[in-house]
Nucleic acid binder design. Structure first.
Lengths: 201, 201
DNA sequence: TCGCCCGCATGACACCTGTCATGCCGATCG
DNA sequence: CGATCGGCATGACAGGTGTCATGCGGGCGA
């Protein structure tokens, strides 16, 4: 029996995935949490074999959680289950020692297959996603560029961004300009959108 | 036995929700589709009692599908199941004769409860969402403003938007300006974000 | 019928944005 | 070591952006 922890902020979906996994005779969901920052405690308490993590979660996102579990030398394996198979996400997951990566639009039985593979010490990657990540290449943005794109994406004005980061407005515009050049986009809205889709911010 | 049609573009999630509903003795999933534009045919073929529709789908979004079903006088009731409980979505759904509206982060048993209520001729609304919709008020944006906000949100340059809509650039900027004023935002990125969160574009 | 309001559309003006030239610093490499 | 490259930071300039005054036409209440 493979013991599973499920982390996803959408309660109903979490319950549905638990129901799906409950249909498999060799799988057992032993814990469910709705926030990233509750995963560590739940792992400590329930000692699951595999942690199935969503990426978009309040508290801490699934990739950050995976990195922390990896750094703390936790016994349990991690399988990411997410809506967005963005290239940047996949790379960050691999770097964090994640061995399974399944998209929410994958075939129904793929999650159980991934969990078994991961529990057996193997890896499970969606072929489409892996190909996409290879094609997209590395994240070309610097830390400053990412930060400023993130803030721009929330609708923050240039002046406010400059104030918050202790920069001149011209410098903020300059980072946006280099980011736009790197992403091949011609304005800030398009650059933010592109960076988000790649999983780079 | 209540016969259900399930429409959601995320295959794995669709399967999971089907598994969840399969646990209920009085519910039966008789059809599953992954695109909005496949719903009509599936309804005609399987004659379900209740159609459970996601909003974000390729082909046609769930609200559009609900409006079409309503207009065609279909026998089956509609229950919307979505990640985003945006005020504008709820209003559009009500206008389309939808009688159930459930958020994906609602408690696990809420979907089954909503389906039973809707099948019995009643209505089922998440109290939180309904309150949010009341508080947000009506969509203040005109058709032109929505269209231009949508295009701006995809990263399209002002000049291209003007060309596509056969307007001068100044007019496009003006619509963005009035939209920004109505939404209380100070730049186009913020306005797009705000309108999206309200479900107004 | 007459104002009145609202949506649609435009051009002009002030200001914000995107780009460029420039410089500094640390890392990498021949 | 000196050369070179990439990240960080700035100011100046041209052009795009947000705002305003203005006008047209359709619907709606007085």
């Amino acid at each position: 029996m493979i013991r599973i922890l499920l982390a996803d902020d959408e309660h109903l979906i979490r319950g549905a995935v638990a129901a799906l996994l409950g249909l498999e005779p060799d799988l057992e969901v032993v814990a469910e949490v709705g926030r990233g920052d509750e995963v560590a405690a739940a792992v400590a308490e329930h000692d699951p074999d595999v942690a199935v993590l969503d990426i978009e979660m309040p508290g801490a996102d699934g990739l950050t959680v995976a990195e922390r579990l990896d750094a703390s030398g936790a016994r349990c394996s991690v399988c990411i289950l997410t809506s967005f198979g963005r290239p940047g996400y996949l790379r960050r997951a691999m770097a964090a020692g994640v061995r399974g990566f399944v998209a929410k639009d994958a075939p129904t039985q793929e999650l159980a297959a991934a969990i078994r593979k991961v529990h057996g010490g193997g890896r499970y990657l969606d072929a489409e996603l892996a190909a996409g990540a290879m094609a997209a290449g590395d994240n070309p943005l610097s830390e400053r560029e990412r930060e400023i794109l993130r803030l721009t994406g929330t609708g923050t004005e240039t002046a406010r961004i400059a104030a918050r980061l202790h920069l001149s407005e011209g410098t903020v515009r300059n980072y946006l300009s280099t980011a736009m050049t790197k992403l091949g986009e011609s304005n800030r809205v398009a650059a933010v959108r592109c960076a988000k889709e790649m999983g780079w911010i």
